[in-house]
Design a protein around this nucleic acid. Sequence first.
DNA 1: TAGTGGTCTAGACCACGAA
DNA 2: TCGTGGTCTAGACCACTAT
Lengths: 251, 251
Amino acid sequence: MHPTRATVAASGEPTKLGFRPLYMQVRDMLVQRMVQGLWGPGEALPSEQDLAAELGVSQGTVRKALDELAAQNLVVRRQGRGTFVAEHDEARILFQFFKLVPDVGNPCFPESRILSAERRAGTAEECIRLGLVTGADVIHVHRIRLLQGKPAISETVTLPAGLFPGLGDGDLIPNNLYGLYASEYGVTVAKAVEKLKAVLLAPEEAEQLEVAPGHPALHIDRLARSLDGSPVEWRVSLCLTDAFHYHSDLT
Amino acid sequence: MHPTRATVAASGEPTKLGFRPLYMQVRDMLVQRMVQGLWGPGEALPSEQDLAAELGVSQGTVRKALDELAAQNLVVRRQGRGTFVAEHDEARILFQFFKLVPDVGNPCFPESRILSAERRAGTAEECIRLGLVTGADVIHVHRIRLLQGKPAISETVTLPAGLFPGLGDGDLIPNNLYGLYASEYGVTVAKAVEKLKAVLLAPEEAEQLEVAPGHPALHIDRLARSLDGSPVEWRVSLCLTDAFHYHSDLT
DNA sequence: TAGTGGTCTAGACCACGAA
DNA sequence: TCGTGGTCTAGACCACTAT
């Protein structure tokens, strides 16, 4: 049925050195198809049996690939229904990407008040962080985010303009940006890295957040990456942590 | 070979309602044995074949159980050698439990300077956080931790005295506390939850960290839990984040 | 009832590490 | 050389969902 080492999708060479386990090849191919937008967020993937037949591997191998994708939150498996591409709905954002929760009460999604949105040449730092050539165009958004009705976060978002044509040109900018990236531009935020520091607010920042200058705030520097690992968004947030805290699970 | 639903370890009932998949039962039993100290940190577990034979399940079922434990960092699998109970060596602490890293350079383990260590009745808050009855004895340690040779963290650690008899009574308190808990008291820290806030340092705290009062600092409140989920340690850290940051992976 | 993912088994061969 | 975990297969039955 199979040679000693089958290679999915017949990449040509007999894969002597540098071969990879079949299930990893299957996993990578499935990711590739998601990147290409073959299946959009919320859509069902083919069944394990169908994928196995198409790729010429056993169902167990497809299953192991899908299990890994599920562990990375890239797909959601539902018994009796199928396997679906993960969506960036508010529930997922809340449990995966938004770590600021009230000291008392349940996690909640912040409202947004846009202060500015523009397209311009990126600064040196912006281009480096986003992996762009110096001087490439970026989209820059500044907004205040409210929790429990009060200003809690001053947030600046910087995006590669090439990935998001037309974003912010008069359009409304929705509260849930990752959902917009996915639905309008086919860009899926798959993971992010955050760097946290404690800082003092400058007068301007303090005014936006309606506290006194010199008030302490949590400074969060986040770089979000897409399915293929390329930088998609650089986001810097200044968070008031008087009634909230950043939740971190060490497992 | 097996009834419709085998139950590992013959817990008596035929497991009608509330039965659990075999691999979960196997996983829980393995955790139970680690809790009991049957295999100490760093020791090898029996091979998959041996465990399968002993428990009367297939090797695949044991494997799935072990894979889950490996995903939780409770065991480490090494091809060709065996499966080992995870240790709290500095490498693991560094990648799993110590998230404060230099802005430039590699993560490093902090040195410690003990300021106080005492055994006393716990405060109301301490007893609540640790799940103890009001007024139970706790061990309280206060130390300054140094990174790159300079004070960076003021840390207070509170433990249930009952779990750690004799700790701090003249003994040296090592740098790596989780290693001590495991090796001397058979208590394995398996996971923890942290709450982060930005605060201003009070005069006394500032003096200990050799900065000016009112300097911003990252306030980290950590509750660590053992294999069975019971609270083991409450730790509050005040961290200078001028040259360091807290690293958080969102995956 | 049909189709999906979830569990469990049995057996084969491979890659790695230690003796 | 042997024993370990790692990969892959094939097939069975179960639980859940939709129709």
